[in-house]
């Protein structure tokens, strides 16, 4: 699961931050262009996957420890559900973002950004976790 190819290593080092930047763009620009939390989460996870494929699983685990991933995966869903509960506490229905701010439009905007963030965090964490769990079973040989 690890390569000593110099070209691959250099390209990965250059490419990973760009992929992460693109994932953040897709995440937070999803209101205006194609994309959203799900796509952003998957793209973010591909950056870590690329890193793990080139530098090995241990190096990738140093970047993102597995415990953090487990917490993040649950935190995303909690964030999403939390928005729903907060909107209930503020007097609206479950997941009715209009009550989150002074005007309904501003509330919708906040609600959509926060829940998309929750989706993105959960999807990215679960995808990386899946990859780590699978690749741990590969024999080093």
């Amino acid at each position: 699961m690890m390569t000593n190819d110099l070209i691959l290593r250099v390209v990965t080092k250059w490419l990973s931050p760009i992929i992460i930047l693109f994932a953040l763009y897709v995440q937070f620009h999803g209101d205006y262009s194609p994309g959203g939390g799900f796509q952003a989460g998957v793209i973010f996870s591909t950056a870590i996957l690329l890193y793990a494929l080139t530098y090995g699983l241990d190096a990738a685990l140093k970047v993102i420890p597995e415990t953090a991933l487990r917490v993040a995966a649950s935190f995303g869903v909690l964030l999403y559900g939390g928005v729903g509960v907060v909107s209930m506490l503020l007097g609206g229905n479950f997941l009715n973002y209009s009550v989150l701010a002074d005007t309904p439009l501003a509330g919708q905007h906040i609600g959509i950004i926060v829940i998309e963030l929750g989706v993105g965090i959960t999807v990215a964490a679960v995808m990386i976790l899946l990859f780590f769990t699978f690749s741990r079973r590969v024999d080093p040989e």
Binding site: G30, D31, Y32, G36, Y97, L105, Q108, I112
Partner: peptide, 13 residues
């Protein structure tokens, strides 16, 4: 919703 991308508006809101 104030969101130009309708897909996001439908999915998220």
């Amino acid at each position: 919703t104030g969101v130009p991308n309708l897909v996001t508006a439908v999915l998220a809101s």
